[in-house]
Design a protein around this nucleic acid. Structure first.
Length: 457
RNA sequence: GGCGCGGUGGCCGAAUGGCUAGGCACCGGACUGCAAAUCCGUUUAUCCCGGUUCGAUUCCGGGCCGCGCCUCCA
């Protein structure tokens, strides 16, 4: 079966036919590194990680190139560094390291390439020069601007026309723009702001140009999938298309740039949109520090289809933890042996526009039932299927007992004492110990193979 | 104001022009020294108003509500 993905360009499900099945290319817009990643940043990372895993499964591990950029030059970065009184480079390095740690905790694989904007300036300048040469851009007042009227297809992705945008504009039009819709490719930098020498003087790139340059450098002018959050459709991806298509001497998006556009929906928290003024920003780091396992956050994100709006709530996270308790509980009682087989229905659900809710609640849960039933090979299948979702890859002991081994020996001793009490049919003592452990958040489970324990969330 | 997305049972959440996923929770039962885990069983739905149709939750129109974007917010 072919993978089908919803394409923002056509607003319909489109079969994925890679240009080269030996080299499937995917570009996803990455973080601007000035602050901790919040759950809204985490959703595209997890969603496209699942797509990456699916593509690797279908086309082979070595045949998928996944690129996620790092935006390390940006006016928000400059402002944050100034506010912190720290060098820009220190801020971006520290934030990127934290980003990596957080995304690792969510079980996201590292992309094949992670180009940085600051290391891609030369490529940006080359594209800007090409655009000027082709009549799609012009220098004015130290800036270089993209001429939107020069690109007839402009607005196709977001389905806007220029009249509507001008009517709705809420920002004053800069005097050096020939057309109100024109956007900045390059802008001058004063001495106290990062800048690079260019044919137009010392300056820095506009926001959109970096992705045009980095995707071209890593994937070539035309590649298969471009992804990101739905809020990037306009203006970022619209402008990126204009730049890249025109720089590649073309007119049509799907023949001169990304062939499929995939966008994930917005995230809300406990029924409200996240905002700094409401003080309800859920950073991944904070959730982890609150003791919520990254895998539970990941599962909570994947239990909603990626294009749907997602309301992340405390209850959803609790439910995801309970799900994982069941999965890992079954794997603990029935350890997997050998290579697992991936259920056809499960794979078909993922190939059908990444239907992770169906894959999880229908197929993965059914596989869990098979494990509990004692079906041969079911455990290995469960782990293999989980692997496509980036789930169930740790040992059950690690899941239940946590990385923190402190206190394990003490618990083991109490469990042993209770086992002895039960053997002596001293149930009062056995129950006393159970209660004592329960008060510590430790839940016991007597099985034919012995007594197991776990730390409850 | 313009453009776009969404509104399914207590909660979550797919799918679909008719054959009415699934999960979680709840309740009942089995099992268990007691639990936990597991298994079995019961219950609840398609925002409102029109239209098309033999038949709509699904298609079309209108309304209400929530959300996003409208030049640098994932």
């Amino acid at each position: 079966m072919t993978i089908r993905l919803h394409d923002t360009l056509t607003r319909a499900l489109e079969p994925l036919h890679p240009r080269d099945p030996k080299r499937v290319g995917m570009y996803v817009c990455g973080p601007t590194v000035y602050d901790f990643a919040h759950v809204g940043n985490a959703r595209p990372v997890v969603v496209f990680d699942v797509l990456f895993r699916l593509l690797r499964h279908v086309y082979g591990e070595g045949h998928v190139v996944y690129v996620r950029n790092v935006t390390d030059v940006d006016d928000k970065i400059n402002a944050a560094a100034r506010a912190n009184g720290e060098p820009i480079r220190a801020l971006t390095e520290r934030t990127l390291a934290q980003y990596h740690a957080d995304m690792d905790a969510l079980g996201a694989l590292r992309p094949t390439h992670e180009p940085r904007a600051t290391e891609s300036i030369a490529g940006m300048i080359r594209i800007i020069e090409r655009l000027i040469g082709a009549g799609n851009a012009y220098a004015a007042d130290g800036h270089v601007l993209f001429s939107v009227p020069s690109f007839a297809e402009y607005g196709q992705l977001s389905r806007r026309n220029r009249d509507e945008m001008i009517a709705g504009a809420r920002v004053d039009v800069a005097p050096y723009k020939r057309d109100p819709a024109d956007f900045v490719l390059w802008k001058p930098s004063p001495d106290d702001i990062p800048g690079w020498d260019s044919p137009w003087g010392r300056g820095r790139p506009g926001w959109h140009i970096e992705c045009s340059a980095m995707s071209e450098a890593t994937l070539g002018p035309v590649f298969d999938i471009h992804g990101g959050g739905i809020d990037l459709v306009f203006p970022h991806h619209e402008n990126e298309i204009a730049q890249s298509v025109c720089a590649h001497g073309g007119t049509r998006t799907e023949t001169h740039f990304a062939r499929h556009w995939v966008h994930n929906g917005f995230v809300m928290v406990n029924g409200e949109k996240m905002s700094k003024s409401l003080g309800n920003f859920w950073t991944v780091r904070q959730l982890l520090e609150d003791g919520i396992p990254g895998e539970a956050i990941r599962l909570a994100l994947l239990k909603t289809h990626y294009r749907q709006p997602l309301d992340l709530t405390d209850e959803r996270i609790t439910e995801a933890r309970a799900d994982l308790d069941r999965f890992y509980g079954a794997l603990r009682r029935t350890p997997p042996e050998g290579e697992g087989a991936i259920d056809g229905g499960f794979l078909a659900a993922l190939e059908d526009d990444l239907n992770t809710p169906a894959a999880i609640d229908l197929h993965l849960k059914r596989q869990l039932a098979l494990v509990n039933e004692g079906r041969a090979g079911a455990s290995a299948g469960l782990v293999a299927m989980g692997g496509l979702l980036g789930l169930l890859q740790q040992s059950p002991e690690a899941w239940f007992k946590g990385a923190d081994a402190g206190g394990d020996a003490e618990i083991d001793a109490l469990v042993a004492a209770r086992v002895a009490a039960r053997k002596a049919r001293d149930f009062a003592e056995a129950d006393r110990i159970r209660k004592q452990l329960a008060d510590q958040g430790v839940v016991l489970e007597d099985t034919p193979q012995g007594t197991l324990w776990r730390r409850a969330g």
